[in-house]
Simulated assay, not measured.
Amino acid sequence: MANPFSFTNSVTEPRRLGVFSVGIACLLLFQTHSAAAESPTTVCRESGSPLHLHVTGNFRDYPASSVAEAVQNSFPCPNEEALKSTCFSRGPLHLKASVVQPRGQGQANGHIAVTLFWENEAIRSSRVSLSPFSNSQPPSVIKGDLARAIKLLWSACTTETTDQ
């Protein structure tokens, strides 16, 4: 009986290498696409507590870059009360914004979820449904929904609701 792990068969070896090469190429392409969509941007520098913003998700058939641009261009920075909270006393923070708007007509409305991280620990998060207007509009329409989600997040960081 032949060893199934040997690569001595000259007929199947090129086929195995071809399938393996295609698999590696697809994996690299997927990783490059994901990394481009998730590259962090620093926002709220003027507030004294800059945030590293990671944007993920999809908005119907629009590219991930247009979703990231819409979030970055309409991102509301924390208010003074939130900046005084213990959420911001920990050090450099990361905020992940995930936008999901399904493709096709008749689909349920999407949502925006925002989570505030310190190192690898999630501190606070909020989630809101996208307005019905987002079903037929470009990603720039999420400005109001993003403001609602961030307002909920900043209010969760106020001194009354933060862990001591």
Rank of each mutant, 00 (worst) to 15 (best):
N135M: 04
L116M: 07
S129F: 10
Q31C: 07
K143W: 01
P78V: 09
V11L: 12
K151H: 14
G144D: 14
I24A: 15
R15N: 02
S89T: 14
G91Q: 06
G110N: 06
L116W: 09
L93E: 02
S34K: 12
L93Y: 05
K96Q: 12
P102A: 10
Q137W: 10
D61I: 07
A36G: 10
A82I: 06
S65D: 10
C44T: 12
S125C: 03
I150N: 05
H33E: 11
S131E: 08
N73M: 04
C157N: 04
N109S: 14
F7D: 12
L95I: 15
T42G: 04
R148N: 03
A147D: 10
A97N: 00
E80N: 12
E160L: 13
E81K: 15
A97I: 02
I142N: 01
E81P: 01
T115E: 13
I123M: 14
A37E: 11
T12G: 05
S125Y: 15
Q72H: 11
G48Y: 08
G57H: 06
A37K: 00
N73I: 01
Y62G: 00
V114A: 12
P4N: 03
T12F: 15
T12H: 08
T56Y: 01
A35C: 07
G18K: 08
P78N: 07
T115W: 03
I24L: 15
S34R: 15
T162C: 13
W118A: 04
T42R: 13
L17C: 00
L27K: 06
A2K: 15
E69I: 00
A97M: 04
L146K: 03
P92V: 06
L51Y: 05
P14R: 05
P14F: 08
S85H: 11
A97C: 09
F88A: 03
